[in-house]
Amino acid sequence: MMLVSCVASAEADDATLREAERFLELSGVAEAMSQSSEMVIDQQLQQNPTLIPFRRVMLAFFEKYVSYEQLKEEYAALYAEHFSQKELQKINDFYASGVGRKMVRSMPELMQKGAEIATRRSDQHLPELQKMMADEAMRIQNLQDQDDHFNSVLQPQ
């Protein structure tokens, strides 16, 4: 009886993993990961232009270690841990539907526009952030000055 239970469990796990992999495909995770890797690299290059000659190498590194193909099994296992086979089937039914496919197609634009909204909102309040940072810098400086004062008082003459 125990052997039958283990075999059934392994089959259920395999079926759940298959549904998880199907979810990754239907939901566009492969494409999103590829785009995300390029975005991360391009952001790093913007912040540090001296790395621009290494873009090709960085992309090759990401492809070798952090690509969808390299992480697919671990990602599937992650989703299989959090969702049952039946839940994944229901999720996959949605992503296979017309509205699910539309969601996958729309998601990059929605994420970009969402980021623009957040950036615009934070830019509107940038002076407040700058004041908060200046106040914090002053607070830290005051603490350091107090510490310097106490250290000088405690040192023998």
Rank of each mutant, 00 (worst) to 15 (best):
Q144E: 11
A77L: 08
Q35T: 15
A96D: 15
P108T: 08
S84K: 00
E128N: 01
E87A: 09
S9W: 13
A8V: 12
Q146H: 02
M58P: 02
S122H: 08
S34L: 07
S37Y: 06
Q46S: 05
V66T: 04
E73M: 03
Q44P: 01
F23C: 08
V4L: 13
A12S: 11
G100S: 05
A15I: 03
M138T: 03
E74C: 00
Q70G: 03
R22H: 15
S34I: 03
E81I: 03
L78F: 15
E19Q: 13
Q146T: 02
K113H: 11
S106D: 15
T16L: 04
I91E: 12
T119Q: 15
A20S: 03
I52H: 05
D123P: 01
H125A: 05
I117L: 11
M132V: 00
T119N: 10
D145Q: 12
L129A: 10
M138V: 12
L110P: 00
K90A: 14
E109W: 04
N151H: 06
E74R: 05
P49Q: 07
N142L: 14
S9R: 05
Q46M: 08
H149V: 01
E74D: 09
L88S: 02
D148S: 04
S9N: 12
Q70H: 02
L129Q: 13
R22S: 15
D93E: 14
E136R: 06
I91G: 04
A96T: 06
D93N: 07
V153H: 06
M132K: 01
H82P: 01
E31V: 12
S5V: 12
A12E: 15
L26H: 12
L71Q: 13
M111I: 12
E87S: 07
P53W: 03
Y79S: 02
I91T: 09
K72P: 06
I140R: 03
P49D: 07
A20C: 08
G28L: 11
A20P: 05
E116L: 09
E74Y: 04
T16V: 06
E25P: 00
A10Y: 07
S9F: 15
V7I: 14
L78R: 04
M133R: 04
Y75S: 07
L17M: 08
H125E: 11
L129P: 01
Q44Y: 12
V99I: 13
T119S: 08
V104Y: 01
E109K: 02
D123T: 09
F54P: 00
E116D: 15
A137E: 14
A76V: 07
Q146N: 09
R22G: 09
K131C: 02
Y75P: 01
A77S: 07
A8P: 06
Q144F: 09
E109H: 05
Q46P: 00
E81Y: 01
Q157W: 11
L71K: 05
M111E: 14
D147K: 00
S9H: 08
M111L: 15
